[in-house]
């Protein structure tokens, strides 16, 4: 129990699961999953499609019964006390799952009743105002755009002031501006003590998280504070600038030791796990017309690109092969 979150806070962790396992038929979807989420953290849950993120989240909030393992969520047993957990957790599903044929207010009102909120009317009105939808309260939820649906869904799963938010790919199909607003909201919730576990495969969202767990083929491969992720991944990075970035990029992509090249504004970042080989490859370019090469610390971005490109969809593949390093 004292092996709390990566930051080792004194308070017991909000989520503490050990060795969670789930199989659908003969397919092992989640395999020996451990996780400990400290209070007030924004915990990013990364992994390719089909890696078991949704299944894991569903087990944590009592929507699925694990085939093996134990766990507590907000101090309640995830198998035996699912209804206690459900009452205290806000869960936002991957797909919009409010009633499209109810109005915005009716949806919020329904959820508020489900959680038996005192002063329900007031609470709903407040939520509508926070949402900025007070004047459209009577509009049917189904007629909202993707971004608004997502904000409504967040408001709905927050209506009972949960201590823990489980967000399953909350920003899929939402435009960048709406995503940024969404994350500002998440950040302010976390500042107020709400713990947030958010699954995503957007890199720009992953960098918003305090902690990251990376899952592939149902197994957790990496778990740590965001700033430690680059060193955990073990990547070295060089920054290259020059007049013709396109040509440089092409040259680097084929060079030995260069595992990924990414463009950041007017410079390229070339990264690889074998530092000596990588250094040799980029040094070969140094000194050409206006080309500058310098070593830099590996950022979270490079680490995520590395993780994400290492694993493709996890649906059909054999888990014994192709596990990203």
């Amino acid at each position: 129990m004292t092996s709390a979150g990566p930051e080792g806070a004194g308070a017991p962790p909000v989520i503490d699961v050990r060795n969670l396992t789930k199989r659908f038929g003969d397919k092992l979807v989640v395999d020996g999953f451990d996780m400990s989420v400290p209070r007030g953290a924004i915990y990013g849950f990364l992994g390719p499609n089909g890696s078991g993120k949704t299944t894991t989240i569903r087990m944590m909030c009592g929507l699925l019964t694990p085939d093996g393992g134990t766990g507590k969520c907000l101090g309640y047993d995830i198998v035996r006390q699912a209804s206690e957990i459900k009452a205290r957790v806000g869960y936002m599903t991957q797909r919009f799952s409010l009633y499209e044929d109810l109005s915005i207010r009716e949806n919020l009102d329904f959820m508020a009743r489900m959680y038996r909120m005192p002063k329900r009317r007031q609470r709903v009105t407040l939520a509508l105002e926070d949402l900025g939808l007070a004047d459209r309260a009577k509009q049917l939820a189904g007629t909202l755009s993707g971004g608004w649906k997502q904000r409504l869904a967040l408001a709905a799963c927050m209506i009972h002031d949960p201590e823990l938010l489980l967000l399953d790919e909350p920003t899929a199909g939402v435009d960048p501006k709406a995503r940024r607003d969404f994350w500002r909201e998440i950040r302010s919730l976390a500042d107020n003590g709400v713990t947030v576990l958010v699954s995503t495969h957007y890199m720009d969202e992953a960098v918003q998280c305090d902690h990251i767990a990376y899952i592939a083929y149902g197994r957790k491969l990496i778990d740590g504070a965001s700033r430690e992720i680059p060193s955990i991944v073990g990547l070295s990075t060089f920054e290259i600038s020059g007049p013709d970035l396109r040509a440089l990029e092409e040259a680097l992509e084929d060079a030995p030791g260069v595992e990924q090249v990414a463009r950041f504004g007017s410079v390229l970042h070339a990264s690889g796990t074998d530092k000596a080989q990588l250094a040799a490859a980029v040094k070969a370019l140094d000194g050409q017309d206006g080309v500058h090469v310098s070593e830099r610390s590996t950022g979270l971005e490079e680490a995520f690109i590395h993780l994400m490109t290492g694993a493709s969809d996890n649906y059909a593949a054999d888990p014994s092969r192709k596990v990203p390093s």
Partner: peptide, 14 residues
Amino acid sequence: ERGTLETLIATPVR
């Protein structure tokens, strides 16, 4: 079919 069942059973409703 509409996916609303997931929201419904994620609430403490019996």
